[in-house]
Simulated scan of single mutants.
Amino acid sequence: MRILLWHVHGSWTTAFVQGPHTYLVPVLPDRGPDGLGRAETFAWPDSVQELSPEQLAGTEVDVVVLQRPHEEELAARWLGGRRPGRDIPAVYLEHNAPDGEVPNTRHPCADRRDLTLVHVTHFNRLFWDNGSTRTTVIEHGIVDPGHRWTGELARAAVIVNDPVRRGRYVGTDLLPALSEAAPLDVFGMRTAQLAEHLGLPRERCRAQDLPQEQLHSALALRRCYLHPVRWTSLGLSLLEAMHLGMPVVALATTEAVEAVPEGAGVLSTRAEVLAEAARRYVHEPQAAAEDGARARRAALSRYGLKPFLHRWEQLLEEVTRR
């Protein structure tokens, strides 16, 4: 099967392209958001092929995986007038929780009969107004990085991109109090000014923007994984941390309450409970190791690569037969 999709979310795409198909990824000279091409920081197989818009015009495509509203028009233009849903089978993959007038936010693909809308969490499907569009949920799959946790650094790891701009959405305002319980190492893009923005000394909050290939090893050195996000889709970084064998301390919001079972960490809507959990893991490495091992087992069972690819295979076969 020849599948056209844009390189939008590197971690999710890395799992998706492990399947048995040929994956066609648009590329533009500037490698901007609509033409990133192959990933440079993730390991993708040779079955992922870069194609320019000119090359796509004459290429056979079996199914299109749309991920952003404007991609439908891009696809029609770059595929020589062939429209997703009408001329080529299509699914729309929704990565994000709704924004705006939640829970009345209407999905851009609501009331469509010509495609299937795929959500990555049950929470997202519940909160989006999907109208009459056929919907399904295919939960995340993770390429297993292995059980790497050592916890040798008595610090908590946080992953968040653009924490200053995104603020309360990602729990940036909670970090000062949490850093009193456990010193924090914050990883992600545009984190350099975080400590200064929060007025925190470096020993309580260090920010690092590491290359993807170094991130898992760096996370595994920290005692626990802290996820203070108020409103988002389920972060792949949380699932990756669980795969690494890290115990999780997270706000009990969105899909986190489904992803982190009892014994794999601590979930609460009370910031003081999270602070106490982080403090305990920092001071009790054996407890962190035991809960982290349970977190890994739970993540492998629910978010392993094999079930993820199997569910996608079933859906793609179904939509291309219709």
Rank of each mutant, 00 (worst) to 15 (best):
L178K: 08
I88L: 11
D111Q: 07
A157Y: 04
C109V: 04
G141L: 06
T135H: 05
G146P: 04
G245H: 07
L126S: 12
P20H: 09
V249F: 04
W312S: 07
H216Y: 08
Q18Y: 02
L236S: 03
E60M: 01
R125V: 06
A75M: 03
E262H: 09
P183A: 05
R190G: 00
R148E: 10
L305D: 12
T191F: 00
Q67T: 13
D173V: 13
E284H: 10
G146N: 06
L309E: 09
P201C: 06
G265E: 04
V248L: 13
L305G: 09
S268F: 02
E318R: 09
H119E: 01
D111R: 11
C205H: 06
R204A: 13
P201Q: 08
T121Q: 01
V61D: 00
P33G: 08
Q49K: 05
Y303H: 15
Y225R: 00
C224I: 04
P163K: 07
D99E: 11
F42Y: 09
E213F: 03
V319A: 14
V102H: 02
V319D: 09
S233P: 06
A181G: 14
N161I: 00
V65C: 04
N96K: 09
A252Q: 12
R155S: 02
R83G: 01
R86D: 03
R113N: 15
G245F: 05
L236E: 06
N124R: 05
P103Q: 10
L56N: 01
R190H: 13
L66T: 03
A293Y: 01
T116G: 02
A39Q: 11
P69Q: 09
V8L: 06
M242G: 12
L115D: 08
E317I: 00
F42M: 10
E290D: 12
T116E: 14
P201S: 03
Y225P: 04
P261N: 09
F123S: 00
R280A: 14
A259Q: 01
G245K: 12
L115S: 08
T253M: 14
P247A: 11
V137Y: 05
S217L: 11
G304P: 15
I88N: 05
L300I: 14
V25I: 15
R202I: 02
M1C: 06
L210T: 11
E290Q: 13
A277M: 07
A256W: 01
L117M: 02
V229N: 14
L5Q: 13
D209G: 01
G167P: 11
E40Q: 12
V160I: 15
D144S: 09
E40H: 11
P108Y: 06
R204G: 05
D62T: 02
Y225M: 02
E262M: 05
R83T: 15
L117F: 01
E54R: 13
G100R: 12
L178F: 01
D162Y: 11
Q193F: 06
P29K: 10
I159D: 02
D114F: 12
F308Q: 02
A182D: 03
A288W: 08
T172L: 05
P247E: 10
W128K: 09
S217R: 10
